[in-house]
């Protein structure tokens, strides 16, 4: 019973963060929202008895994807300011 309530909470947070990622004006906030989606999905994988997938999703989706996004966003902003 407590598991169902927690999974409902996690799903609601994931869906709200998905809307934030699409509709927010600032690109940095959208990228961090996609990182939060990966993090909460990793918690859901623990409930679904998949610890290997949880470790992979937490370390790749939240750290590496967000870092790659920020490197490219910095380069685009740098060239935009210089122009």
């Amino acid at each position: 019973m407590i598991q169902s309530v927690l999974i409902i909470l996690i799903s609601v947070v994931i869906l709200v963060m998905a809307f934030v990622a699409i509709y927010h004006k600032s690109l940095q906030v959208a990228v961090i929202a996609s990182g939060i989606i990966s993090l909460f999905a990793s918690v859901a994988y623990i409930f679904l008895a998949a610890p290997d997938v949880a470790i992979t999703e937490a370390s790749i989706g939240s750290v590496l994807t967000v870092a790659i996004f920020f490197y490219v966003l910095n380069k685009i902003r740098h060239e935009d300011i210089k122009k």
Binding site: P51, D52, I55, S59
Partner: peptide
């Protein structure tokens, strides 16, 4: 540690490689 003990505990090559890349960042 994660990728050496991949066959005994949760973990493995992909997870350990991702943690090593985070160290590089």
């Amino acid at each position: 540690y994660i990728f050496i003990n991949g066959h005994l505990t949760p973990g493995g090559g992909f997870q350990g490689g991702a943690v090593l890349a985070s160290t590089f960042i």
